[in-house]
Amino acid sequence: MIRYLRFITKRLILLLFVLFGLSLMTFLLARVVPSDPAATYLGPRPQPEQVERIRAQMGLDRPLPVQYALYLRDLLSGDFGTSLSTHQPVLASIREYLPASLELMITAMAIALAVGLFLGTLSARHENTLIDHTGRFIAITGVSLPAFWLGLLLQILFFRVLGILPLGGRIDTMVSLIHPVKTITGFLCLDSLLTGNWTAFRSALLHLILPACTLAAYSIGIVTRMTRSSLLEVAQEEFVTAARAEGFSERRIAGKYMLKNALGPTFTSAGLAFASMLTGTFYIEAIFYWPGLGSYTANAILSIDYPVIMGVTLLGAVFYVVVNLLVDILISFIDPRIRI
């Protein structure tokens, strides 16, 4: 237990460093940019004297270290500032957009784990056969596909040609009007399920399929590769050979001994992939018009809306470090051989 605590403390200290470095970096970037936050705050065509006044109001005329100190102070008290373009508090907006992104990410990860573990196991069991080559080829194609392009192709195929899936958005507009979903978790599918709102659930689920599959492509590749290679590694370990000598059936060996031991590295890389999804959903959210954090950030970038960019960057870093920490702890439970 002490071991865990020490490990967690160490990681959290690193997180503090990361956050401090990141906040400093984003802050400096924000000041280097040849754009005037005061002007952005005011809208498309502010007058010079308005800009001067707002600059003073926002404290932009103070020395940089003072500005940074003030920024940190606000940050520590949970104030991420106000968006320059929507004039909404950043933290509240993030809270608003996060569930949509998480719903997409979790679905994508579930797909990736299901398909990846299956393909990886299949590949490993038939090493160096046509099945293996096909499995590996699918995996590598998965990590080589430009997500933004895959999304476009899927849209053409399933919306335009086949006409069986919606183009984008989270739910059908008419459905959301007639069968409004009560927000409980912010996950539309879950909320509609919990409230027994079947029409809305159906619509939300159909809308989820394409973006989730697009987002899953990369992770499918990662999971398949890791499952395969760690299974093959484990296959050479003594306890597997021993189990074989004992006369256990191959299926039992694979299921009981190998897969369990191979899960560690697979989960680690899946965790990494999941953590980076939060910041990697830009393309997919843009293409499928998914109202999540990615869309929010993309809009902020186009208007150089610094409070938002900084807020999301910091949040992304926290998410990344925390997910990795959780994955490491989880793995040490699954496979006690791994020490953290």
Binding site: V18, L29, S276, G316
Partner: peptide, 20 residues
């Protein structure tokens, strides 16, 4: 370690947004 922990794509986007 610090740089590795940064969300790389987001950082890249922020840098590009800043520098043009």
């Amino acid at each position: 370690d610090l740089f590795l922990a940064f969300p790389s794509l987001l950082l890249a986007v922020a840098i590009v947004a800043a520098l043009g």
